[in-house]
Amino acid sequence: MGNPLGRYLLTLRRLWGTALAMQLEYQANLLLEVVAAIANLIGSLLLLSLFYGGGRALGGWSWPQALVVLGVYTLLEGITSTWLRPNLSTIVGHVQQGTLDFVLLKPIDSQFWLSTTRLSLMGLPEIATGLGLMIWAAAKAGIRTTPWLLCQTLLMLLASGLLLYSLWFLVATTSIWFVKTWNAIEVLRAALSAGRYPISAYPAAVRTLFTMVLPVAFLTTVPAEAMLGRLTLPWLLLSLMVACLGLALSRAFWQFALRFYTSASS
């Protein structure tokens, strides 16, 4: 049988292979998607340069520093298009069509399967631009990237990616009860778009909301702080904790939802 980790890794590799093959099956569609993604990106960059033009500062963040936040946000958007949206929308499809049964009958973790079967190339331009923007803006803000700084940033990006995943998965899980949850996911996206700007740019009450209730602060501001070398250890630990908590919560909620699942009977 081989060891379980090897089995999961091989499964993952083959899943992604088929996911890419599936996209390449429709060349024209893929080309259009990439063009759309690039056009979308150019549009939002133009808009933001208008916003931030004139050397204004935002909540104590200089223009280049704020651009690091935007870079993180763009990166997360790319991850959403590449990884989260394709996978989690299939959960809704599985529930509607009753094919979740096939997933549940495989000797593999159902959350793992549902979170990894799809991969879209559509978000890759955004991921590249987000990373580029982060590096460029940090340099502009006068930051010398040391290996330690890089490690911290990567760790915080990982934490924020996992947190974002957990939020998406939590919302997608509710489709077990409500079947159509696409609107809820749009609401989540709209709320998270607040992460475009540094958290300190918001009034105190909103700031509390975005830290304690909807963890927007941990998604973009904290990784940006790490990149700018201003992250304190308590915030770093807190961010890791929040990410782990999010994951644990998404897992527990999924297990709970499965107990209610009875599938569309024929």
Binding site: R7, M22, K106, P107
Partner: peptide, 18 residues
């Protein structure tokens, strides 16, 4: 999978079942 040859899906299943 609707869009792919069955062999692709079979390869994934083989990995799942080790």
């Amino acid at each position: 999978l609707w869009d792919l040859p069955a062999l692709d899906s079979l390869r994934v299943n083989a990995a799942v079942y080790g």
